[in-house]
Measured scan of single mutants.
Amino acid sequence: MQYKLVINGKTLKGETTTKAVDAETAEKAFKQYANDNGVDGVWTYDDATKTFTVTE
């Protein structure tokens, strides 16, 4: 399945996608991506759209 990440950071904004077997695996990949880019915020997930959002 394909999952999307929407980033609403202080210095980084945008979107990225990943393919993963489940939401938990996608979340780990997205959190690593956010961490690598210095984004630390509040996470939400919408199962209907398979979209994670992180807001600083």
Results as ranks from 00 to 15, higher is better:
M1R: 10
M1E: 14
Q2W: 15
Q2K: 09
Q2Y: 14
Y3W: 07
Y3A: 01
Y3V: 01
Y3C: 02
K4T: 15
K4I: 12
L5R: 00
L5P: 01
L5V: 03
V6I: 13
V6L: 08
I7E: 01
N8A: 09
N8W: 13
G9N: 05
G9S: 11
K10A: 12
T11L: 11
L12K: 09
K13S: 11
K13Q: 11
K13V: 09
K13T: 10
G14A: 14
G14M: 15
E15M: 11
E15D: 05
E15P: 04
T16V: 15
T16H: 14
T17S: 10
T17D: 05
T18V: 15
A20M: 04
A20R: 03
V21G: 10
D22G: 04
D22A: 04
D22T: 06
A23H: 09
E24Q: 13
E24R: 12
E24K: 12
T25I: 06
T25V: 08
T25W: 06
T25L: 07
T25Y: 06
A26T: 01
A26F: 01
E27G: 10
E27W: 15
E27K: 12
E27D: 04
E27T: 04
K28V: 10
A29K: 10
A29M: 13
F30T: 00
F30P: 00
F30W: 02
F30E: 00
K31M: 09
Q32R: 11
Q32N: 08
Q32M: 09
Q32H: 07
Q32F: 05
Y33K: 03
Y33S: 02
Y33Q: 03
Y33D: 02
Y33G: 01
Y33R: 03
A34F: 03
N35F: 15
N35I: 15
N35V: 14
D36G: 06
D36W: 07
D36L: 11
N37M: 15
N37I: 15
N37L: 15
G38T: 04
G38Y: 06
G38C: 08
V39A: 04
V39E: 02
V39L: 10
D40A: 13
D40T: 14
D40E: 12
V42T: 11
V42C: 09
T44F: 09
T44G: 05
Y45D: 00
Y45A: 00
D46V: 05
D47K: 10
A48W: 07
T49E: 06
T49Y: 05
K50R: 14
T51F: 02
T51M: 04
T51V: 06
F52N: 00
F52G: 00
T53D: 03
T53R: 05
T55S: 08
